[in-house]
Nucleic acid binder design. Structure first.
Lengths: 206, 206, 206, 206
DNA sequence: CATGAATGAGCCTTCATTCAT
DNA sequence: CATGAATGAAGGCTCATTCAT
């Protein structure tokens, strides 16, 4: 059960010991991969930057795709729970909207490279089927996250969402992706625009 | 003037003869690249699938990036002019919206692989600066296209757009990208959803 | 007869017209080759730098070796006659020695790249037999040149050379080569050392 | 300390194990390189002739230059110590001179290809800066070697050298290079001339 | 468990050379 | 005569993966 949440879904559940080591290694590798992108990062880069041995990566992961899939999965699991507290503690719809927007803007800047990696992987999945399951699982994770915000926002507003979960995710994802690109192109008010836009977009779901 | 439109802006305009050959070769290469993706396609693949020699690709293109940039550029130039007729001939806002939606849905299916390639390239640009100029130029092209539709739609409605060009592009692009992914995942009503959604989204710009 | 002097010996004498064009083309190519070295210069570099077409080079030369051999040959023919005036006009052995040293030092600096190319080619000949004849012919040319100086020096001194032509050439060539390397390594007094050393070395032949 | 002597100075000293393997591989590669020359030998040639894999060459060497630099360095380190015994054991200046000349003549024939490679590499350095450090280090090695002979010769003669180390090296190097070329051109008495000439040249340093 | 040496297919690119015009 | 488009073999190099230790 725990494994089902913290490990990429495409892999059979292993012993706890192995699963834990996989998480550890994937976490160590994440920064290097996020920094350089999927196609531009070799296992030797990862080994060199993390101090890990080349052999251990292949011992715990079937191949490069397995490692990167696991790393991105962990990164996004954490990302999807970033808004839990805001949803749980906000007392008004306005508070929720503000909190959500602020969190989005914050992670846009703070976890810039990891978000970029996620979009990179999702893109690769359009060509290779290998990542398909991981990508679909993460999309599900993020859809649930967005929907928990939208649903709670409607609830606090005493209203009902006028969009379906998949639509809501598509809206916010598209906007976030756009903001990320702008931020990477050094558009200075990209985070602020995301923050404000998210509030407005949340309101438009009612 | 013609060259400025049909050739990637990053390359100095050569003689007409060379420019024409570049277009020809890039067009021939496009299918192979679109089929397999940027990172997964080698020049040998292109040569083999098109019947071209390996040498000729390097004779007319500085490197792989130059070739792929040119191919995608041509593909999107054509794509951006797909809606010109609808904009020019529609007599009512409803006709324009329907025509636009129908065209979007049609190209989603017909040019599926080329759209996917464009998103692939745009994604690569987040890691390599090499494609930056081409990507920005294409983004501009598509922004103009979207805006020509939105502006005409408002005009025919006797109204004014409530969004700016960049925002309008972001909306439609996000939606199209999403629809493309759905379509590639074999969601059966992805084209139809795109068609209907586009009409609604166009209306929401007023 | 003229051809025998101005064209590389390995090539059959052709019509005057062709021979003249070969000289012209080789002269145009010389600077580019000398600048970058034998192995690092492609025919396309030469074509690009000189404004010549790729085809014409292959029309007048059998291959790259033929072109480069001809270019170096011409360069060294000129070089070997640089001292004729000094030999012919000097009235004393001291004047001859001084003139010879000065000329050597001058060409060391002025024709630095061409001398380097000559040593490059002579070196290549140790591995490829293709240049063998040209190299041997040039060595003969230079031996004659050195000997004409040494013999005249002895004559003006009322003495007889104590070395044979080949030895004299070996001495001066080794010294010149050494000075060239020093000059290329930016040793500031390499030309001056060559000038002075040549005078001394000339005296030591008696 | 040992490493500092047996490995090319341009490379950081790695672990002993790696350094040892580098020496081993470079030694294996040497024959092939020496046989065909720097520019005419590909890594594939080396791999094929030695039975090594292509990958291992890139595993232990940064690039082709690194491999060849190491190989030549090793070859010349050995070469520079060939005269140590003669210098150490000779009891008279005549014995030293004879021993030195004999050794020179012997290596001229026995290690012909390796000497040719060294001159090839030194020549390349006139065009590429990549080998500069290795070449300078080897020149230093050989200068020391020549000087140890000259100095000891003077000592045994109860005299003092009239030349400086760099001059002595230039003299013997030029003469040796000349003899090598003659030998490669199948001049039959090149070794004998070298032997005799070296004795005379050694005497002329006093 | 863990290592890292070793592999070789595959990549992009360069280049002398050919040949239709 | 002269051109330059076209060729494809060969080059250096990268990399995921295997495997003996």
């Amino acid at each position: 059960m725990v494994d089902a949440v913290v490990n990429a879904p495409s892999r059979a559940v292993r012993t706890d010991r192995v699963a834990a080591r996989r998480r550890e290694l994937a976490a160590a590798a994440l920064e290097t991969i996020a920094d350089r992108g999927f196609a531009n990062t070799g296992l030797r880069d990862i080994a060199a930057h993390t101090g890990l041995s080349l052999g251990i990566l292949h011992y715990y992961f079937d191949d490069k795709d397995d490692l990167i899939g696991q790393a991105v999965w962990q990164s996004k699991v954490e990302c999807a729970h970033r808004y839990d507290a805001v949803v749980a503690t906000s007392l008004t719809s306005a508070e929720l909207a503000e909190g959500f927007g602020a969190e989005l803007a914050a992670t846009l800047v703070a976890d810039c490279a990891e978000h970029r990696l996620w979009y990179d992987l999702r893109n690769q999945a359009l060509f290779q089927n290998g990542f398909r399951d991981t990508i679909i699982a993460i999309d599900g994770l993020l859809t649930d996250m967005v929907w928990s915000v939208v649903a709670r926002y409607a609830e606090l507003s005493g209203s009902t969402p006028q969009v379906r979960p998949a639509e809501a995710y598509a809206m916010f994802d598209g906007f976030f992706r756009n903001s990320l690109i702008a931020h990477l192109r050094d558009v200075p008010d990209a985070p602020e625009n995301l923050r404000i836009g998210a509030v407005r977009m949340l309101h438009s779901t009612l």
